[in-house]
Amino acid sequence: MYKILKKEQLTPLIFSMEVEAPRIAQSAKPGQFLIVRCGEMGERVPLTICDFDPKRGTVRIVIQIAGVSSNKVCSLNEGDSLTDITGPLGKPSDFMEFTPDEIKSKHYLFVAGGVGAAPVYPQAKYLHSLGATVDVIIGARNKDLIIMEEEMRKVCTNLFICTDDGSKGEKGNVTVLMERLVNEGNKYDMCVAIGPMIMMKFATLMAKKCNLPIIVSLNTLMVDGTGMCGACRVRVGGKTMFACVDGPEFNGYDVDFDEALRRQTLYRKEEQQAAAAAGLDFLVRK
């Protein structure tokens, strides 16, 4: 069992939890993810890793209520335990192979959509700690979905906030900010976009327009997360890849986002029925 040591509510629907998982805390690297399970009939839910502390033997996860399973996880309190956590899964970010000297001279642009700020955090933290110039854009539909603003500010060079409705930061979506930053003369070596699939699609289109290389982190459907089932397969550069073992990070230019978006809807009907049955009416699309 994996005890929850600390729980924080970041927004009405987004929670942060610090969980005892010593092995994962020892081995996790930026770019990787994990899978949690809650209850004996629980689903395996892939989640990003927001932070990890090898000394304390803890990992931090940030999770948004998006269905029955995430709601179960979010209903747990400090002192409760998750039934299972497996990880770290997937490959670490490419820059983990770079030497500190190489990183020092790099200029990174991170684009975080909503809860995507969580997996951006350890990446920005790592690069910033090694002296890279790190700009971060956090964007969301409205101010209630913007998370980790103050923490992020400490691990980056410049932080930009935007919301679709203008309720916080600049009005507009992340691509508007991306384009402006590039037009202002910022020379980025690499852009990394993590968030909803649709946001990563448009961030990639904007990156292409700006001639900016871009890495995206794909949040596909998964069951085991170890390469065994192929539920996470995605077309990258015309080839079928498994997000869990070949990714989760891929060159955005190569990803078939339309296929990835379509594959995410595979169990939409079942998810909606389950949400309705569990009384999670706010998740049910009319």
């Binding site: 092995r23 994962i24 020892q26 081995s27 990787q32 299972d84 956590i85 497996t86 990880g87 770290p88 899964l89 170890t226």
Partner: peptide, 9 residues
């Protein structure tokens, strides 16, 4: 359980 050798350790 939950130890993916090669990744976890």
């Amino acid at each position: 359980t939950n130890v993916f050798v090669g990744r976890t350790v």
